[in-house]
Design a protein around this nucleic acid. Structure first.
Lengths: 347, 347
DNA sequence: TTGAAAGCGTTACCAA
DNA sequence: TTGGTAACGCTTTCAA
């Protein structure tokens, strides 16, 4: 490959200057034309020439140079779960797709960034280097005040974190897992259950959510004399579930909220294998899951589940856009979604 | 908030020039110190002063400016599935976490980018704007030659796409789904099955994989006289599965490779609800899934599954790093993983 | 209608 | 041991 004219792997990417040379105009003209700011400034045939030159050269603008000059980038950074894998459920994936698309229409570039971070501040520093227009921390530990401050000082217009409250300078997106617990608890109580187990997953990263759900069940039970709530440790393995099932008689529970459809399926199977029956009749054990996954509907009995209804992706995208445009907007807590109970045969 | 000294949201982020002023040194010195290139150049106490100044100002280097100057960015872009949601299985999530971490140790910033793209070239253009060091297209349609060329011309050192072969200028990461089909087919044939159905998911984005898996089963059957293979359309809904189960007698199949554990679970349940029994005995219907998901082991009978063993994340990260360092490396096809059959009770 | 030039934040080179 | 300066690619203001 000694052809000096067009090597397949160009050593240096074409710049707007190269386009200008080829079209016989100035760099300024190129910029105007390619950014649609040429109306009434540049002759139509000149525009055509510029576009053709750009096309032929395979010119692509350099986002870094652009945002350097503009003083602000257009990327919206989302913190990806680094190790807490289970967070990537189909729910979140689906939300993500819609969200990215909505951001795109608003002129942003949505990007998932998952670097292993020793601390929230370390993560914030890594994110800040990219000078994003906005940062959303939807997973892992919520951003704390120092992390938010770092991001704000680095020029991030909008900082959003999940969690019940917004640190100074940030906004919060809140999915109140307590509500899930309340729904499950009230449902079970209404069906006459009084001794309710609540699964606390052994897997790390889920502890915060699990705690809230437990609190929700407790809150529901508080209004019902004679009701008892008992936390249960469970790992996502068949051994762990078998152990819990073996201990069941000693526990004397008549119902369980299993955090999750996965934990629920696991436990339900273990209980059945241990000779107990699961279902809605008083002498059976009632089981409630969450997330309303498809496989859980395939079990017999069909699993009752607390479904998460996440807010419309474009609503959140609009919110982010608004915050970017008005960085000084008063911090607030925004609902990220709600829960709904899908009653089926297991309770 | 009229305090002119320290507004919480700084209007302009601190620059290296600000750090230099505060420390009473030049910008060059700041650069040396903060990049660890100061050994033997800058006095220890000067270094301390610079670091202190940076700390106090909350200085974070500007990635865009850095990569502008360096001529090359350090981000590794991974194409995220924009709409083909199912790709985000636990397998991929787990790989991703390890991969990001490995990239981080090599000095890269791994980033998932999922913009809605009208075509591969449009996607490539969006990616090229970020001037990434490397691009990995692990989902969706493989990159075609024009897309690769665009990226290469934009200076992307390493372009990797999934698929059986590498377009000019790109490398390929290949997970040969045919092998999964072969494994499933051979397994079923060895168990005496001769009339094998293969599920083709109705969901788009899976067609390519499904086709390969079907081809694999066909290849296995080709070596076995009397064996027949029949494709079956199935959507991921209970209605679709019920319809297929109802048609079963007419199909006269004694085995099915269901693409996926999810499809397998769905179909297995539908068959059972229609009064057929699933299992390894000759008069039962044999069902094989794939991906070896936990819930599939909870069904009765336990589901036989083809497990995907993805390559170690740090091996892939090392590969990418090598390609970035040597952009002219001869394109090759690299195995992304292998398959293994986990025989259980359903076949 | 077009061109020239400045400046965004960083780093590498060369001079002091 | 340190500082000045130029250059990366782009947008934008001002002048022609």
């Amino acid at each position: 490959m000694t052809d000096p004219a067009g090597p397949p792997a160009t050593p240096t990417p074409p710049t707007s200057a190269a386009v200008a040379r080829r079209a016989g105009v100035s760099r300024a003209t190129v910029s105007y034309v390619l950014n649609g700011r040429a109306a009434g400034r540049v002759a139509a045939h000149t525009q055509a020439r510029v576009r053709a030159a750009a096309e032929e050269l395979g010119y692509v603008p350099h986002a870094a140079a652009r945002s350097l000059r503009a003083g602000r980038g257009s990327i919206v950074l989302m913190a990806a779960p680094a190790d807490a894998v289970p967070a990537f459920g189909p729910l979140f994936s689906h939300f993500l797709a819609g969200f990215q698309s909505a951001l795109h229409h608003l002129g942003y570039t949505g990007v998932l960034h998952g670097a292993p971070a020793a601390s929230p501040v370390a993560a914030a520093r890594a994110w800040a280097e990219l000078r994003p227009a906005a940062v959303l921390a939807l997973h892992g530990p919520p951003l704390d005040a120092p992390a938010v401050e770092l991001l704000r000082r680095a020029g991030t217009a909008a900082v959003l974190t999940h969690g019940p409250q917004a640190p100074p300078g940030a906004h919060a997106l809140f999915l109140d897992h307590r509500e899930a617990g309340v729904l499950a608890g009230e449902h079970l109580l209404a069906r006459g259950r009084r001794r309710i187990g609540v699964v606390l997953p052994a897997e790390p990263g889920l502890a915060a959510f699990a705690g809230s759900r437990l609190a929700g069940v407790r809150a529901a039970a508080a209004g019902c004399p004679g009701a008892e709530v008992r936390p249960l440790d469970l790992a996502l393995t068949e051994e762990s579930a078998a152990r819990l099932a073996a201990a069941w008689p000693a526990l004397g529970l008549d119902a369980v909220f299993a955090y999750n459809d996965e934990y629920a399926m696991l436990l339900m199977r273990a209980l059945q294998d241990a000779g107990r029956t699961v279902g809605g009749d008083p002498e059976q054990i009632a089981v409630v899951g969450a997330d309303d996954l498809l496989p859980a509907r395939l079990l017999r009995p069909r699993l009752t589940s607390v479904r998460t209804e996440i807010a419309a992706p474009d609503r959140i995208a609009g919110l982010v856009d608004g915050l970017v445009r008005d960085p000084a907007a008063a911090p607030a807590v925004h609902r990220l979604g709600t829960f709904r109970l899908m009653a089926r045969d297991s309770s």
